[in-house]
Amino acid sequence: MLDATSQPLLELAGLQAWYGESHILHGVDLDVRAGEVVTLLGRNGAGKTTTLKSIMGMVGKRAGSVRFEGTETIHMSSDRIARLGIALCPEERGIFSSLNVEENLMLPPQVRPGGLPLDQIFDLFPNLKERLSSQGTKLSGGEQQMLAIGRILRTGATLLMLDEPTEGLAPVIIQQIGHTIRKLKAQGFTILLVEQNFRFASTVADRYYVMEHGKIIDGFANSELAANMDKLHTYLGV
């Protein structure tokens, strides 16, 4: 663990968010330190995806405070937030059907120096290299997920937000993604992960937050996972 007094990379305080008329987040407080992998757990509809989108500035209206490297972003548009060094891999993956794989991969612009070079991305996801000229949405689900992660590694973003990267994928691909996340962590990326599957999360995460009804209701480190198992079962209803 890093020094607890050092400033967190990402710091949410009393974050509220709305989609149109509906109030989704009711004051989310969490922080993520540089180099950590933090996982948001919670049932469907608890507000996990909305939290990621709110950090990114993609919701209709938000209030409270979101600081990245000490910079307040609550009044920024999402393109400016992205330029600070935050990148999102959305739940629905967001592969563009009118772009081929290469165009999808090269789409996000460099926001900072120090992104992964292409050959390293192809080392992580060799499948992509063979299918560069295919239509983006013709890839298998697993390949689309690799593409969605791969394209944000290029940009130099230091905080990666991955929304349910294992959803609907075969076990062997889930393993590959777990391997990738550990590798990225080793390279110094900071990762905020949303997961339903906490068995998978436990293989990569340093810490957990649990969400319910648009709020953080609990948080613990990976080492405390076993002690919190019963509580977690209640929270997640599994």
């Binding site: 992205a82 330029r83 967001g94 165009e103 789409l107």
Partner: peptide, 23 residues
């Protein structure tokens, strides 16, 4: 490349914006 931005933004403008492009 510019055209790729355009096509992508036609499909999903908010995601393209979240990549740092001034949609």
């Amino acid at each position: 490349k510019l055209g790729a931005y355009l096509r992508a933004a036609t499909e999903n403008p908010s995601l393209v914006r979240a990549f740092g492009i001034n949609v």
